[in-house]
Nucleic acid binder design. Structure first.
Lengths: 256, 256
DNA sequence: AAGCGCTTGTGAAGACACGCACAAATCGCG
DNA sequence: CGCGATTTGTGCGTGTCTTCACAAGCGCTT
């Protein structure tokens, strides 16, 4: 991480003493702000206005200011935000001032790609171990890491102080993998398997399901299609229009 | 999709006439319900209670009932929901009664994995075309599809009636790809590139950033660590504790 | 046919998030 | 030194989402 120290600042730490408890919605946006800020820093910008940063992050400027205000006041009225300082603050709050180690379980189609994804390394994470249940895959070397058998998962997780476990296995294996991660002391899990995991209190799970994203888009496609089929019927849902109901969108007819 | 027809139902269509406008939060959960329902159907269950289904989907049962109530009343009091009927209803609302075609742009690390991901095909989507800008990759065959040059994107998207475009390129190329998708008539985009896309009104974009998910988990790790380090200091944020600020969490020390 | 247990569907209240609009603060310039 | 231009930080109204709690409805049993 960037070890920024403002030029004239005294060495007495002015960092937030303990973590403010941020709204979850704010936390989810901070990484996006951080990415935009790194872009700005690379282009040599030293300060940035909320308007500019908000546009770069794709959000409303008032929302951005409110989000940042939760971390404390690090902007200057009439000027804007100090890019480097803000980067440090967000990275501190997100816990990125220490590089977190990641264990990746399941090096199939998706897992293989994740293992080779350089976006992790460049944003503060280090994949420290790979696991798979398939004996054929165990021993394979990917990006300088040797795939180990999943039976070693708990032990290695403890030894290597794994902070985050990434599950990229088939759904049927995911719960067992999660159990082993928890047994190894892991308290944060990113789950790519299409299933619900049950974990003890204190363990955070985030789920990413690629097909779900497509299905949500599909809904909006469907909605848009049904609107264009009924150009003048924005509110038609509540007005029966008795004769023509079944014909509103021919391509969608089911059953009948 | 499954052309379910309840045994005693008349052939007069009882499907919802036009699409109800669902809360966005509900739409995002429907795919999860759908997955759980398919699991139940495979195991031979014909009906399911909201309590059961909610648990399988990892949500509150009241929330589940309210979500489903937005689609209309398809449950039976005292009994539960008809699994097959509910599957049909959700698939209809999500627009999965017709198989949607997907174009995948960028067959690098991640794109390659997505091209081979069978979760798309099993959930109503068909990857119809692959594109890349790298001449070395053009012509390569992946899963029976030949990679085409991105210059053909707009034309092919129109010809093949692509419904959804998936961007798995580096961030620098993503906006140009989005423009070409839009030019080809695509109105739904799933963006894996870490950047904000600007698109015309009427085009939906969903963004998935794998590193962002890890950063959110990192925040919670950080928070948990700072809590265990200060077991009795839940409200310490506002009480300065002058002397010991920098020492609250040694491993997090930055700068100084 | 009536009663009982079970489950859905929903009204209402609380919690959360959003965005406007403006006061407060800072810088630069005359 | 004062004033205007600019931009942050935030109070407040609005809308959305969540959750509780219960009435209404259904089927089974007697």
């Amino acid at each position: 991480m960037s070890q920024h120290r403002p030029p004239g600042a005294p060495e007495r730490s002015v960092a937030v003493p303990a973590l403010p408890d941020l709204p979850e919605a704010t936390v989810a946006r901070l990484p996006e702000y951080l990415r935009a800020l790194h872009n700005l820093a690379e282009n040599g910008h030293e300060t940035v206005s909320s308007e500019w940063l908000a546009t770069a992050a794709g959000v409303n400027s008032a929302k951005l200011r409110k989000d940042l205000s939760h971390l404390g006041s690090y902007g200057t009225r009439g000027v804007g935000y100090d890019v480097a300082l803000l980067i440090d603050q967000i990275e501190y709050v997100l816990g990125l001032t220490q590089r977190r180690t990641v264990a990746l379980v399941g090096v199939g189609n998706l897992g293989h790609a994740l293992a080779g994804y350089d976006g992790f390394a460049t944003r503060g994470f280090r994949i420290a171990a790979l696991f798979d249940a398939d004996p054929v895959r165990v021993g394979e070397e990917i990006n300088g890491l040797v795939v180990r058998h999943v039976d070693e998962l708990s032990r290695v997780a403890t030894e290597e102080s794994i902070a985050i476990g990434v599950i990229a296995t088939p759904a049927a294996a995911a719960q067992r993998v999660a159990d082993r991660l928890v047994a190894g002391g892991v308290t944060s899990i990113l789950n790519f398997a299409p299933c619900v995991l049950t974990v003890p209190d204190g363990v955070d799970v985030r789920k990413v399901d690629l097909a779900v994203e497509l299905q949500i888009l599909s809904f909006h496609e469907h909605r848009k299609a049904s609107l264009t089929a009924l150009p003048a019927a924005g509110e038609a849902t509540l007005t029966p229009l008795p004769g023509s109901l079944a014909a509103t969108d021919p391509q969608e007819a089911i059953g009948t």
